[in-house]
Design a protein around this nucleic acid. Sequence first.
DNA 1: TCTCATCCCATTGACACCCATGAAATCCCA
DNA 2: TGGGATTTCATGGGTGTCAATGGGATGAGA
Lengths: 166, 166
Amino acid sequence: MDRFVSTFTNKIDAKGRVSVPATFRAVLARDGYEGGIYCYPSVGAPALDAGGERLAQTIDGLLGDLPDYSVERDELSVALYGDVQVLNIDQDGRIVLPQSLREHAGIDTHVTFVGLGQKFQMWEPRRFEDFRARARHKADDHRKLFGAGSRHRSGGDQGGTEGARE
Amino acid sequence: MDRFVSTFTNKIDAKGRVSVPATFRAVLARDGYEGGIYCYPSVGAPALDAGGERLAQTIDGLLGDLPDYSVERDELSVALYGDVQVLNIDQDGRIVLPQSLREHAGIDTHVTFVGLGQKFQMWEPRRFEDFRARARHKADDHRKLFGAGSRHRSGGDQGGTEGARE
DNA sequence: TCTCATCCCATTGACACCCATGAAATCCCA
DNA sequence: TGGGATTTCATGGGTGTCAATGGGATGAGA
């Protein structure tokens, strides 16, 4: 398995530790993460984005389009890297969320881990339920756009799979 | 054989396990599924969609068109990946349906597996019977619209093994 | 010295593996 | 072609392992 999938809710203990779901750890292990996972406030949502080496490379990729030593690049670098924290995973697979990150997401006693394919998010469980409900609606709309039969090309092979679920 | 066809009804045991029909397992084996099958609530029906690696790639294809780091992408990712569960198949070909998925489909003691070609669905047997009855009505209406003469098959049951071993 | 982070160990509950059983389908041979 | 033998499959249950969680002990830095 090589993508983050599904959602899990775990508890924060008295020391502020919370277990990263085992399946996510497995993905991270494959992804390759030395020292810890990358974590930063999500853009446009009260949540935290996190991932391994591949996520860091995605960020690098965004910067790669801009010329070295340009003001734009520096600004974007600050915006993208400035809020990033590296979180260590202890031997039992747990991390500690710094205060600043917890505040941004409104996380208190429980954390909902949400797999998004190449990265995952951490949410306060209730807020996530609200967000999920809204996301489903939008996804339904999206699906209607694809509609019946309108096959959309995709980079890979997957010869002739139908457009969407359902 | 490379698509899911026919329907089977199997029982959930005391531990919450249910056998995936052997023919479906054969299709999955060909499809390639490392670690498990992908399963999520069906859209617009009280059922569960499931499939192997090919299904997962279909989801990837939907997301591939959206830019990294867009809020839109995150939302769609939540709807597509966030609801997905990866179900392991044990050595005897059985899976365990998590509570959340069983609720969505109203599944209690028995599961009806319905082949849909690329993927398959899991239903609570009664609900599926209702659904099937209605689907037949609609199919009949369609046939009437096409008019007389073009009768290409007996209007019967399309040879599925219904209610296999009860 | 106090606080915080890390390490280590214990508990518990869920799940995966293993084996057994019975029924149905298939094979095989007279 | 019929009937016994064999295989496949769905199902039940025991047991060991692993993940999530709680808490004590140790070490580093303020």
